[in-house]
Computed example of a mutant assay.
Amino acid sequence: MSQNPAQFFSKTRQYLVVGASSNPIKFGFRVLHWYCRHSLPVIPINPSSREIHDIQTSDNVHDAWNRIVKSGVNYDGLSISFITPPNVTRDVLQSIKNDDTQLSEKIKGVWFQPGSYDSKVLQLAQELGIGSVLAYGDCILVEGESLLREASDEEAAAKF
């Protein structure tokens, strides 16, 4: 599994925050806010809320992808941040694995926030063939700035 931030961040990527919260003190809100503050196209995933941070939520990753397809915007894929307990993260990844629409091929990267993964989650991510898996204690609120900048630098260098 790769931890390449350039595979997670892209100017043509759609981002999802699984475990987004409307409670400003929770990490699900703070991570969603991080994406908004960086003007990245993001969809909060939360089946209990219709809107968070003035953004329409989706109940799950499948619904979010269907919304993206219907919008007509051409993204190169999905990068997903998980802020959920490992059992919920596993359920989401398993539903993607069991999906018959090849949704897993659209996922270019996942960022497992601290506490959102275990060895079974990492194994499922590997089975799905996800290009970039960021985990091992890295938090987007701490590492995101530098990794986003690094990915931008790599994209710029690739053009020359």
Rank of each mutant, 00 (worst) to 15 (best):
N66Q: 15
A64N: 06
K106I: 08
I83G: 01
N98A: 14
N60A: 01
D76H: 11
G115C: 04
P85L: 01
P114R: 07
P86R: 03
P114G: 08
L78A: 12
D118G: 14
G77A: 10
V88F: 01
D100K: 15
D91I: 02
N74K: 14
I80T: 09
Y75I: 08
Q113H: 07
H62V: 05
I96T: 12
V110W: 03
D118S: 13
S58G: 06
Y75E: 06
G72W: 05
V61W: 02
I107V: 14
V88W: 00
V73R: 13
V88I: 13
N98H: 11
N74C: 10
S104F: 12
S79N: 07
V88L: 02
Y75V: 10
T89M: 05
N74F: 02
K70R: 15
V69I: 15
S104I: 06
T101R: 13
F112C: 10
I83A: 05
V69L: 14
D63V: 12
D99S: 13
I96A: 09
S95F: 01
V61H: 02
I96D: 14
S116Q: 07
S95C: 00
G115W: 08
D100L: 10
S71D: 10
R90C: 05
S104T: 10
E105R: 11
P85E: 03
E105T: 13
S95P: 00
V61P: 00
F112V: 08
L93D: 07
I80N: 05
V69G: 09
N87T: 12
Q102F: 13
Y75T: 07
I80E: 06
D91E: 12
I83D: 02
S95R: 12
W65I: 02
N98W: 03
Y75H: 11
N66R: 15
V69D: 09
G109P: 03
I107P: 03
I68G: 12
D59C: 04
H62T: 09
K106R: 14
N66M: 11
D76N: 14
S116P: 07
G72P: 12
S95Q: 11
V73I: 15
K108H: 10
